[in-house]
Design a protein around this nucleic acid. Structure first.
Lengths: 204, 204
DNA sequence: CTATAAACAGACCTATTAGTCTTTTACTCT
DNA sequence: AGAGTAAAAGACTAATAGGTCTGTTTATAG
């Protein structure tokens, strides 16, 4: 009965390595053989488990990529009090992880969005779905923050969410440059300033 | 004597089409033949003018890409008064252009940075040089804004520049989704808010 | 008008790609 | 232990890649 389990384990192994290599070399610049070399596996094994390169990649997006973004950027904000502070801590943590961990999927998401834009609408949809979930979560958290007295009621939650996501994607893109520590510091500093603007103010 | 000119013209023609195709399909996913098909030119012609695919791409970066970023995002801010307002207008213009013009190189810059990161350090340097010029220009403008009484003296110019660049890269990445008009509106709205925070305040 | 070189055409070469197919190994269940 | 199937191996194919090379066209200078 653990046949299923073993099969899943092998597939996971291939997917994990697959994502690593796809991230480092890009989807189109990565051959199936590149991944297989890393795993000491054969073509036969790969095509036994997956139908094609594309189907393989989509399975990675839905399993690994989505989960990673969810646990790093979405779950930590969900249902918590004081959303602004939570977002700040969450972003800082994610950036710190990214700083030390060479392979971090939250950033890889925007990498792939860039790579597939205009080339593969099918894959694009799967990727943008992740972004949408993130955005909805941010908007919800901000709205809740208004009713709980943490966020200024005049704030446009959707605009703030967009602004947060775009700045986060941008800073992650910039961090490839190398001096990520300084970048993170500068970014969080400005984010904190920005949040002062939209937080709830005691009526004078 | 216009031999040189004709040569330059042909090279420009190939480069322009090259950038278009590279942008749409990505560098690694674009073959020289793809570009040549668009131009109804032959391999012989291409390799008469350029040494290799890589050298060809670098020439595009230095000629077309740099110039475009410079004229769109750097020059409009250079030496002007009231930097915050200038940046706002400049960003809004650039985003509007991007919205209507399918092919806009300012965004392509971060596309390529993403694509070449970890793969081709040589090309990466050329791309990041452009970012550096942009950053230096922003910092200079902000500092000048302080002495001219437009920007709060306590502001960390470098941090603001980083924040601006990252948010701009991010919003451009997001705009591929399609509803770019709304995104632009939201983004500029938040940017305006953010600028209120760092602008010079009359001493009370 | 002709010599000369620049500009271009396109067949060709070698390496690599995604994917197929037949064969072999490893396991499980009776 | 042996049958049957899941898992994996790896040779093979057709298409495509970057790049070379030889030959042809085109344009200019004398």
């Amino acid at each position: 009965m653990d046949k299923q389990l073993k099969r899943m384990a092998t597939m996971q192994r291939i997917q994990t390595t697959g994502l690593e290599v796809f991230y480092q070399k890009g989807y189109y610049n990565t051959s199936i053989d590149d991944i297989l070399k890393e795993l000491s596996l054969s073509k036969g094994a790969f095509y036994y488990h997956f139908q094609s390169k594309e189907e393989f990649f989509i399975s990675i997006v839905q399993n690994l990529l989505f989960r990673k973004v969810y646990s790093d950027l979405i779950a930590p904000i969900e249902g918590q009090e004081d959303p602004l502070n939570n977002i700040l801590v969450c972003f800082d943590n994610a950036l710190e992880t990214a700083e030390h961990n060479f392979l971090d999927y939250g950033f890889v998401l925007s990498n792939f969005i860039t790579e597939f834009n205009g080339k593969n609408p099918d894959i694009m949809n799967y990727l943008q779905d992740i972004l949408k979930v993130w955005e909805v979560n941010l908007v919800t958290a901000l709205q809740k923050g208004k009713t709980d007295g943490y966020v200024d009621r005049h704030v446009d939650s959707e605009a703030v969410a967009t602004y947060l996501i775009s700045s986060y994607i941008g800073i992650r893109t910039l961090m490839v440059e190398g001096n990520s520590k300084i970048l993170r510091y500068k970014y969080i500093q400005q984010l904190r300033q920005y949040f002062k603007l939209i937080e709830y103010k005691e009526p004078a």
